[in-house]
């Protein structure tokens, strides 16, 4: 449900009430996950494991924000198409360092 459907009916009001309950639940989940993030860092895990776990928790938190606060869970196809393209180029951008040589340059 988005503000595109701003006509106020009683059904609509009930819908928004449901949304508000979801927002509160997501907020509590985000608070818990923030504490989990800090707690895990105190365990002093090896760098590869620490990076994996921290990014995993961050991805869960980010997904909650995107899906519920940004309403991506119920968006139109065009928005998904734009974001799929963005995700592809974002992944390519992050992968660039992987394909560089160990000296940091493209050519040895």
């Amino acid at each position: 449900m988005t503000s595109d459907h701003a006509a106020m009916t009683s059904d609509h009001a009930v819908d928004i009430d449901k949304h508000v309950r979801v927002y509160i639940t997501v907020f509590v989940a985000l608070m818990i996950l923030t504490i989990v993030t800090v707690a895990i860092s105190r365990l002093h895990l090896s760098v590869p494991i620490a990076v994996t776990v921290a990014l995993l928790v961050a991805i869960i938190k980010g997904s909650l924000v995107a899906c519920y606060f940004m309403h991506l869970i119920s968006e139109k196809k065009l928005i998904y198409a734009v974001l799929t393209l963005t995700a592809f180029f974002f992944a390519a951008l992050l992968a660039l360092p992987v394909f560089t040589h160990s000296n940091g340059y493209w050519i040895e």
Binding site: T2, S3, D4, A6, T37, V38, S41, V47, A50, V51, A54, L55, V57, A58, K61, G62, V65, A66, F69, M70
Partner: peptide, 28 residues
């Protein structure tokens, strides 16, 4: 209402970026 929703989308994005910045810079 639509305008507020759109400015909200930007604000949530800023929050989302911080969610990744925090562990990346402070904890790893």
């Amino acid at each position: 209402t639509n305008r507020v929703e759109h400015s909200g989308l930007f604000w949530h994005f800023v929050d989302l970026v911080w969610i990744f910045l925090f562990p990346t810079l402070y904890l790893l």
